[in-house]
Design a protein around this nucleic acid. Structure first.
Lengths: 141, 141
DNA sequence: GTCAGAACTTGACTCATTCCAGTTACCCTG
DNA sequence: CAGGGTAACTGGAATGAGTCAAGTTCTGAC
């Protein structure tokens, strides 16, 4: 059912259903934040063949229709996540790169409207919190 | 004077004063957001020789002592800025990549403390606003 | 002026990501 | 349930930001 669900989701988004796409989408559901490389590994573990370019193609397609989101924390490779639609942000460990989701802090999104927008049409406010995760701070102390 | 100022700033930060460093720092003052590549070009235009590696070394050194800040908007190369110390954020054009500074919206930084911090020791909240700049929105309409 | 070490250079290299041309296979139509 | 148009995938090569390592040069303190 989870699998059938995945296929339906792809079809509803107007994408052709392929083994690669379904498997990539499921890999993204299993783990909150995955790199393209890790996605390739997980898909192949399922016995499905996929080329590196295939991974990027699929991830781009999924992102284009809004089924996944791409985030690119400074200093590391891009990661993809299947949690979309809600306005959540990220907390990144400076030491190990671990990424954790954090819900939008303030109830109102007013905090996320720049004061002087210089004539820009703003459509998204991305917030990244930087710090050190419990595991890493234990090691360094 | 501006030049003397630059040299003093380097010395105060505990860095040796070299032609390369002074020139890089001045290049960053001229323009608000510059890529490593653009820095190299500007420095060389001044008649100063610098290797690609040298540019990265200098930028890393300046960033380490807090004279500059490195920002890495998703999808483009890292850019450096000399405006540090104040809590300002960035507005990036999805079409042309132009970056504009925006002042912190809310007076209190409380808005920038994640609700559940998962045990992380957070030291910075980075906010990036995404949109389309006036020039690009004119072209596409 | 001398000298230790910081700063810089050169050149090779890594790694994520993209481009291109050709092949495969999904799914709509009849 | 066959055929065909085209979206999706493959393989291989290329790009480009950034890094590593070893050797040379120059700054600044004594």
């Amino acid at each position: 059912m989870a699998e059938e669900n995945t296929r339906a989701q792809l079809r509803d988004a107007g994408l052709r259903v392929t083994a690669q796409r379904a498997s990539v989408l499921e890999a993204l559901r299993d783990q909150p934040h995955v790199t393209a490389d890790a996605v390739a590994r997980r898909v192949r573990e399922q016995g499905i063949t996929i080329s590196t370019q295939g991974v990027y193609d699929v991830l781009d397609a999924l992102t284009a229709v809004g089924l996944t989101r791409r985030i690119e924390p400074a200093g590391s490779a891009a990661v993809y996540e299947a949690r979309v639609g809600d306005n959540h942000h990220h907390l990144v460990c400076r030491a190990c790169g671990t990424i954790v989701d954090v819900d939008c802090v303030v109830g109102s999104p007013s905090c996320l409207t720049p004061a002087g927008s210089h004539g820009f049409v703003v459509d998204e406010a991305e917030v990244v919190f930087w710090g050190v995760c419990p595991g890493c701070s234990r090691l360094s102390s």
